Computed example of a mutant assay.
Amino acid sequence: MSTFNTRGITLGIESFGDDSAPLVLLAGGTTMLSWPDALCERLAAGGRHVVRYDLRDSGKSTTTDPQAPSYTLRDLAADAASLAGRLGGRPAHLAGIGVGGMVAQVAVLDHPSAFSALTLVGTRPVAPGPPDDDLPDHDQATMSRLFARPMPDWSDREAVAEFAASGAEILGDDPVAARAIAARIWDRTPGTAPPVQMANQMGIVFSMLDCRPRWRERLPEIEVPALVVHGRRNRFFPVGNGEAIARVIPGARLLVLEEAATAVPDAAADEVTEAMLTLG
């Protein structure tokens, strides 16, 4: 893992594979560890230069004040375009997971010449907040259970890892994997200030971003090959959100992972890799 400076900020990055190979850029949701090691390694073995990165206010990227971000969703999209151009030197395959998928949608719309393909994993076509009437919202019973839990002591690594494991169990993800990833995120987080730890573990900064104007109506403008991956058991962004995206992006392929929820499980890494490699 290292850092990369662009547009006056620092972004935490990790590279896999041959630097001269076609670039696959993975936008975190919000940290790079949202993208599983197994998927990164398989993409690299498939002849790609894979770079996963932390969004602002997470991981090793510039962290200022997650409770009052001074940037917008479009700034995050511009970060992706700048990173793609400086790392690859040619249009890159951009992938975003969760809220990183929102960044990826806007990046491809606002900076079409920077990207050659688009993969969207477990995301939706509208900003945080109430969705459009035709889109399924978070499962309310699941959200009630998630937010009924007391916050952990953010200075306690094991408490944070346990909090992540219990959340994964509620969401239908693997609690063992979630515990391990949360511990790695904690280790990479600059300090133990609760707002910073929460931003890294829960992505709360996104609820405070300016995400205007809407981009959903522009999705038919996307001209690059697109893949939409969604877990059938995703209770946070139910699968209808992925289906809605795939319907309106011209030629998009929808890949539903029947046994997955919000995370990409290692068992699905080969299937997702194969689908991504077919895009270019």
Score class of each variant (00 low, 15 high):
residue 12 G to S: 09
residue 12 G to N: 03
residue 12 G to F: 05
residue 13 I to W: 12
residue 14 E to Q: 12
residue 15 S to Q: 14
residue 15 S to E: 14
residue 15 S to K: 12
residue 16 F to N: 05
residue 16 F to Q: 10
residue 17 G to Q: 10
residue 17 G to F: 05
residue 18 D to S: 08
residue 18 D to E: 11
residue 19 D to F: 03
residue 19 D to M: 09
residue 20 S to R: 14
residue 20 S to F: 06
residue 21 A to R: 05
residue 23 L to K: 03
residue 29 G to A: 09
residue 30 T to I: 12
residue 30 T to M: 12
residue 31 T to R: 06
residue 32 M to R: 15
residue 33 L to N: 05
residue 35 W to K: 02
residue 36 P to M: 07
residue 38 A to F: 01
residue 39 L to T: 02
residue 39 L to V: 02
residue 39 L to C: 09
residue 40 C to K: 00
residue 40 C to M: 00
residue 42 R to Q: 09
residue 43 L to Q: 04
residue 45 A to I: 02
residue 47 G to A: 04
residue 48 R to D: 05
residue 51 V to Q: 04
residue 52 R to K: 01
residue 52 R to I: 03
residue 53 Y to E: 05
residue 58 S to Y: 04
residue 58 S to E: 06
residue 61 S to W: 03
residue 61 S to Y: 08
residue 63 T to H: 07
residue 67 Q to E: 15
residue 68 A to T: 15
residue 68 A to Y: 13
residue 71 Y to P: 15
residue 72 T to D: 13
residue 73 L to H: 04
residue 73 L to Y: 09
residue 75 D to I: 08
residue 79 D to P: 03
residue 80 A to L: 01
residue 81 A to T: 02
residue 82 S to M: 09
residue 83 L to H: 11
residue 85 G to E: 00
residue 88 G to V: 03
residue 88 G to Q: 01
residue 89 G to M: 08
residue 89 G to H: 05
residue 89 G to Y: 00
residue 89 G to F: 00
residue 90 R to L: 11
residue 91 P to S: 07
residue 91 P to D: 05
residue 92 A to M: 01
residue 93 H to A: 08
residue 94 L to M: 02
residue 94 L to S: 01
residue 95 A to M: 02
residue 95 A to D: 14
residue 98 G to P: 13
residue 99 V to F: 13
residue 101 G to I: 00
residue 102 M to P: 11
residue 103 V to P: 04
residue 105 Q to E: 00
residue 108 V to F: 03
residue 116 S to C: 13
residue 117 A to D: 10
residue 117 A to V: 14
residue 117 A to H: 14
residue 120 L to C: 09
residue 121 V to W: 02
residue 122 G to T: 07
